[in-house]
Amino acid sequence: MKSLRIWFGCSFGLALSMLFGWSYGFFAIMLPLFVLGRMNRFHLPMLLMVCFSAIWTTLQATFLLEYLQFHPTLLFVAVGIMMLFKCIAMMNPKTYLFGYMGLLVGSIVLNFASYDFIDIEEFNVNLWVISFANILVCALAYWLFPEPNSDVSQDEMITPVKSDIDYISQVAMGWVVAMAAFVVFQVADLYDSLSAQASILIILTPMTLAGSMAMAKIRIIGTALGCVAGMAVQLILGSWFGHGLLFWLAFTIAMGPFCLWLTKGQIKAAIAFSAMSALAVPLTTSLVPEQKDAFFSILYRFSSIFVAVTLTAMVMWVVHHAIRLYLLNHRTA
């Protein structure tokens, strides 16, 4: 039932984004995927936490850029404090979703808002509407496809923390990587590399070095599979990809195997999540019916994600070992 629930939620989210013409409609697919993949039963407080995190973070990031954009040092310090609190929240299973959503959404908003041609208010309002709609989509999915005899409301992400050194090094590693990504995307003109930016933060989800290294490999494999599926959808539809109903049907069919994998263990679930994002983002942002396909966007997505994930994994390895070495030397001194 869980795979059907995820499949329905993602398909329904896509249908709503097409029906109402939501910009950044990939959020309408990825939010149900993220929530339904983690929770076995309808849990309103958790859904409200995800919605509140999205709203609060967009307001935070927009406010910081509005008033501190022309003061780089103050902006860096303020963003650093914001990101630090998000990383600390990710260390607690009860606030993990709040911290992770804040880290991901905050980084995207800070990147988009730095470009004059981006209407950040429109982006924020679209995300708020999609976040509220996500509650209704998930509620309907749980009602139509209930979990039989399930006493578990959610599968919490438990970060293995064994000592103070582990805790400090994991928070510091996540914070350094998030801030490095912020600086790079503020300095360089990487507007089209949203997927690479998201990938940098996605591989932080385990909040451990070993987990992040494994997530980096999974992210590359899943992205490749999702890109292949996206190209297959375009090739099969051909000149008909501008037909809304056929596009929705082909997209829904392509999502099917990945939704099934989300219930087949942690490794397959992680691959499926990466594949779904690689499938959803190009086909909902770069594809323009009867004007532009998403072929080159898909190729660029894979290459940018491969480079970003590889470099991030190297930075995380260096930062993790440097921090642990410093803490151990400081303790023994």
Rank of each mutant, 00 (worst) to 15 (best):
R5G: 01
I6T: 03
W7I: 05
F8W: 10
F12R: 00
S17G: 07
G21W: 07
G25C: 00
F27K: 00
F27H: 07
I29N: 07
I29Y: 04
P32V: 04
R41W: 02
P45A: 05
L48V: 13
F52K: 00
I55P: 08
T58E: 13
T62G: 11
F63R: 12
F63S: 11
E66A: 10
L68H: 04
L68M: 06
L68V: 05
T73V: 15
L74E: 13
L74R: 12
L74Y: 14
F76C: 11
V77K: 01
V79S: 03
L84K: 04
F85D: 07
K86D: 14
C87G: 02
I88G: 08
A89K: 07
Y96M: 02
F98N: 13
S107F: 00
I108W: 01
V109N: 05
L110I: 06
D119I: 07
F123H: 06
N126E: 12
F132V: 12
A133M: 15
N134E: 06
C138G: 03
E147H: 09
V152P: 08
S153N: 14
S153I: 15
Q154V: 12
E156L: 15
E156M: 15
E156W: 13
M157W: 06
V161I: 09
K162T: 10
I165F: 09
I165S: 10
S169C: 05
V171T: 05
G174C: 10
A178R: 04
A181L: 08
V183D: 03
V183S: 09
V187A: 06
S193L: 15
S193N: 11
L194F: 06
S199W: 11
L204I: 04
T205N: 11
M207W: 02
T208M: 03
I218A: 13
I218S: 12
T223P: 01
V228N: 00
A229T: 02
M231I: 13
M231H: 14
A232T: 09
V233I: 08
I236A: 10
W240G: 14
G242Y: 07
G242I: 07
G244Y: 03
G244W: 04
W248S: 11
A250Q: 03
T252Y: 04
A254P: 01
F258E: 03
L262C: 14
L262I: 15
K268H: 07
F273S: 08
M276P: 06
S277L: 11
A280K: 01
A280L: 00
V281H: 06
L283G: 02
L283E: 05
E290F: 14
D293M: 09
F295M: 08
F296K: 05
L299K: 06
F302R: 00
I305P: 03
F306T: 06
V307H: 05
T310W: 15
A313L: 04
V318N: 01
V318Y: 08
H320V: 09
A322G: 12
A322W: 09
L327Y: 02
T332P: 01
A333C: 08
